[in-house]
Write a protein that binds this DNA or RNA. Structure first.
Lengths: 243, 243
DNA sequence: ATAATTATCTATCGATAGATAGAATTCTTC
DNA sequence: GAAGAATTCTATCTATCGATAGATAATTAT
């Protein structure tokens, strides 16, 4: 029995038993993650102290170790939370695209519509003002300097979205979706959106805009759509040259 | 006289007299900045300890306070260094563009050539492998979370580059360079390049590339050029609709 | 040469970082 | 309502943080 405790202690120092918990514990855990998401997004991992995290979450310091072992554990839990939240938000659309792409009767016009829908959705997600806004900062930081958290978000969300985008483009220009140029095009289109978020400060200053309000976001979307049309056109031209 | 010393001490705690220095001091100062650029870029401001900075620069801790007052002062000095380095690297090209844009006899084809040159240069700067590579990380971080350092870099470099790009586009599509759509187009084109750097990890993983080597960088540049052609085409079309 | 200035060092400060032990409390279950 | 598990607390540890004092060495000016 003492042996048993040693074993248990050896495999994990965690005191919190994650498989069996009281409702109150789960709520506290969630509260900590929500607070941490904002803090990590705003100040980064190094710039956020555990005491600040505890304060924002309305808990005492040891609660963090109790639920997440250590600071990094909490950080990774935030990444997992984001990955799941985004996956559940984008999942249906991605599945729908997979179905329509697999269906040979789907018209090119319909595929293009799905692509616009996907990019619009991403633009709203990254540039619009909503509850996810704080999380985006977390992702942006991970892009700039990937940690383990990046792997989590990439595998659960980014890869799927990019694949989805590439599949649509591939079908539209009649090429395999593994094609480098197709994937490069997908990356470029998605990247343009992401940039307007990562480079937000610079872009807004350059455009002399106070913010991406609804009207201005619409203007950006128009530009994105034009670029999509243009990019697909160029890609199709290239396809005809080397069929 | 004692009064005088008090006054001097009050106006600045800095012991290092920046206007009059020995050559050796200037060299040490430069060495610290170079080391700090890499460290700050890699670990961020909060993640870099002054002791690490001192070690990397081969100086002792108080040297940092001696030359830069405090950690933040060193950080801002890094930003100023980057701004100047980039300005001197891109300055000639920007001036050349200004001259050619002001000259009404410059052909549209020539303007397009200048635009491609500018974007190619930016792609090399941000995606190519060279001595500036470490500094880029510093900028990327500032994009994600702007501090005072961002203002320095933006005003000295980004604004000028973006203005230059917008001026070229404006002239090509025959619109004023203050036009929102023109600036948005410029931001989009530059942004695409920046994204391939900020989102480097994700992009490389998605494309299953190990790195942006010379060949692959060339492929990216081709895509950028296609997008430029396409974007200008769309913009000109829009101009004809609303002249 | 010597005085003044500039540069660098050793040693150490107070503050805060992340983490933990162990007691006290709350909740669930029987 | 008592036992036992889960949760939260107070108090504290050690390591490291950025910063400074004050002495010393190096360089230049007179």
């Amino acid at each position: 029995m003492a042996q048993d405790r040693m074993m248990r202690s050896a495999e994990s120092k965690r005191r919190h038993n994650s498989e069996a918990g009281y409702p109150r514990g789960a709520e506290t855990r969630a509260r900590i993650i929500l607070a941490a998401l904002e803090a990590f997004g705003t100040h980064g991992f190094g710039g956020t102290s555990t005491r600040l995290l505890a304060d924002k979450a309305g808990v005492t310091l040891p609660a963090l170790q109790y639920y997440f072992d250590d600071k990094e554990g909490l950080y990774l839990a935030c990444a997992a939370y984001i990955a799941e939240a985004l996956a559940s938000r984008l999942g249906p659309q991605i599945e729908k695209i997979a179905v329509r792409v697999a269906d040979p009767t789907t018209s090119r016009r319909a595929l293009r519509g799905l692509l616009d829908e996907l990019l619009d959705n991403l633009a709203d997600l990254f540039l619009g003002t909503h509850e996810l806004e704080k999380w985006v900062l977390f992702i942006i930081r991970e892009q700039a300097q990937p940690t383990k958290a990046f792997d989590i978000i990439y595998e659960h969300v980014m890869r799927k979205v990019a694949m989805s985008c590439a599949a649509l483009i591939a079908q539209i220009v009649n090429r395999p979706s593994i094609d480098s140029e197709v994937r490069l095009c997908a990356a470029g289109l998605i990247g343009q959106i992401i940039f307007f978020r990562t480079g937000r400060t610079a872009v807004l200053r350059f455009l002399d805009w106070p913010d991406f309000d609804a009207d201005r976001l619409a203007t950006v979307k128009v530009m994105l759509r034009n670029h999509t049309t243009a990019a697909l056109g160029e890609l199709r031209k290239a396809t005809r040259r080397t069929p």
